[in-house]
Amino acid sequence: MEELESAIKPILAVLAATGIALLATLVLRLAVNHVFRRVPDFKSRSASATAPVFVVMLCVGLRIAMASTMSGQPWFAPVDFILVAGFIAALCWLVLAALSVAERIVLRQFTGRVTDGRRRRRLTTQVTLGRRIIGALVITLAVAGLLLTIPEVRTLGTGILASAGLISIVAGLAVQSSLANVFAGVQLAFTDALRIDDVVVVEGLWGRVEEITMTYVVVRVWDERMLILPSTHFTTTPFENWTRNSPKIMGSVELDLDWHTPVSELRTHLHGLLASTPLWDGRTGKLEVTDAVGGLVRIRVVVSATDSGELWDLRCLIRESLVGFIQTIQPASLPRQRWEMMSEPREHTPQPAAAR
């Protein structure tokens, strides 16, 4: 009878701990949803944290139940060690899930209120990178906590601390480049030098910043390629940021034409074209003669657009329209080269004296 009771007690303890953990998770879930009921989509966005909360509650409940009913059993020590390790891992999982939920809610709240694209990109970059830094610290602490639960590891603590100076020097030399990238990533995010969705020109390629991590930056090039660069590249190498202050940008179109080109008619055609296209933002639109040497006249058109993508389309539209206008309306304006044919002078032959 005693053997049967000793076998049933662990089962009953596990069932009771599981039921209490489920009930506590449900109550906590309802309470949190009620507190944050005014936050849009909080219920759906925080659903990913339900599982780690249950695991944490279950580990706590199982350890309390086991300690109160079966602490004298010979298998209690390894089971207790597994429960403690599971609690640390579940707690780390819960913190990471909470950070992810907080990131989504903060970005949803502030990006909806902030209309300035520059501030929105800066907030997205800083919140995302901050979540990753805190997550890395939490994982590091969790691993350290798991190691400290092992008695053999705790006994080595004195020796490890004694040799900490030498270990730190060796580790610093070994991961010098990695640490430099980490600090560079933090510098990029919190000095506002580079933000997610910024338009940049790096390594001679035009692209948009897709992701900023603690060690590298992902740039989506215009042809959908992914350019992955270390964070130190952006702190040690000059690069172009077209959206650093504002996405608005200006660009130019240049044509080499003949001297017979009617500049006033081209200017009138340009103004009509700009007025008819939504790509132009109305800030700058002018046509000027910037050079007139070497047998050709250089026409330069300067226009502006709301962002680099629309500017590219606007420049292509202006170039095609001006070429078509010159070909059909003003063919004499097409660039050409001229040569002048001159006859050789005849040599003067002296006449004889009898013919004079």
Rank of each mutant, 00 (worst) to 15 (best):
G172M: 09
P10M: 02
S71C: 02
V56T: 02
M214W: 02
R154H: 05
M1L: 13
W339V: 10
L107I: 15
T124V: 15
D307V: 05
R346Q: 09
A16Q: 04
T18M: 08
I299G: 00
A292I: 13
L266K: 00
E254N: 03
T236E: 11
T115S: 06
V293T: 13
V84M: 09
R121A: 08
T215N: 00
L83E: 03
H34G: 14
I11N: 05
G86E: 02
L317Q: 10
R37V: 12
R120Y: 04
A355C: 01
A171L: 12
P262E: 05
L28A: 11
Q327L: 14
A174E: 07
R132M: 09
C92T: 12
L255M: 10
R104Y: 05
G251R: 06
E340Y: 08
R336A: 14
A332F: 11
T268N: 10
G72D: 07
L166E: 00
V200A: 01
V175L: 05
A98F: 13
R225A: 12
L279Q: 00
L296P: 00
Q351C: 02
P247H: 07
L322N: 01
V182T: 10
F110P: 02
A193L: 07
V53F: 09
A184D: 02
A89Y: 05
R63K: 12
P247C: 06
L296I: 10
G324E: 14
L141K: 02
R119S: 04
V217N: 00
T18E: 04
V219S: 03
V202N: 00
V127W: 04
I212M: 02
V302W: 01
G324H: 11
V55W: 11
T349I: 13
A189M: 05
A162D: 13
W312G: 06
S168H: 06
N245K: 11
D291V: 06
R104I: 15
L279G: 11
A180H: 06
A24M: 11
F54N: 03
D256K: 08
S68E: 07
Q73F: 10
E320H: 10
K43M: 04
L227P: 01
T149A: 14
D116T: 15
